[in-house]
Amino acid sequence: MRKAVKEMRIPIKKADAILIAVLLAVSAAGGIVAARAGSFESGANLRITVGGELRGVYPLTEAREILVNANYENRIVIEKSEAGKVRVYMRSATCPGKDCVHHAPIALNGQSIICLPNRLTAEIAGEESDIDAFAY
């Protein structure tokens, strides 16, 4: 047998009701913004920094080549396959050693390519991930 729910009547001022409504609306809006910020598709953005300073943020939804000039020159490619898979790699660099060019392509949130001589980092960021770190 279904249990009867007791209804109580609470006196509420009109201002209180408006305040509750406003608070709920603001909270809901905040929640929606936060949810969208963490729900990018196709690996979110590529964040490029040089010497710790942000040089650019590029959505991974479109293929492109990015030229970064600092002490050396790096050419970073965002590549998208026909199946929609994204990967990012360093096409060329003028730095000595060229470890960045030999670095494996990156494709997942949190992965990065660095160019040590140019103090450059290119990191996929912005999408929720269930992986905490990458061993390599």
Binding site: V5, K6, E7, M8, R9, I10, P11, I12, K13, K14, A17, I20, L23, L24, V26, S27, A28, G30, G31
Partner: peptide, 22 residues
């Protein structure tokens, strides 16, 4: 003053939702 009919559980749910969303 005006009164609105509101269930106790509804109050709890509303405030919980507001807290979680914020």
């Amino acid at each position: 003053k005006f009164c609105i009919g509101i269930k106790k559980t509804t109050i709890v749910i509303l405030f919980s939702a507001a807290f979680l969303m914020s």
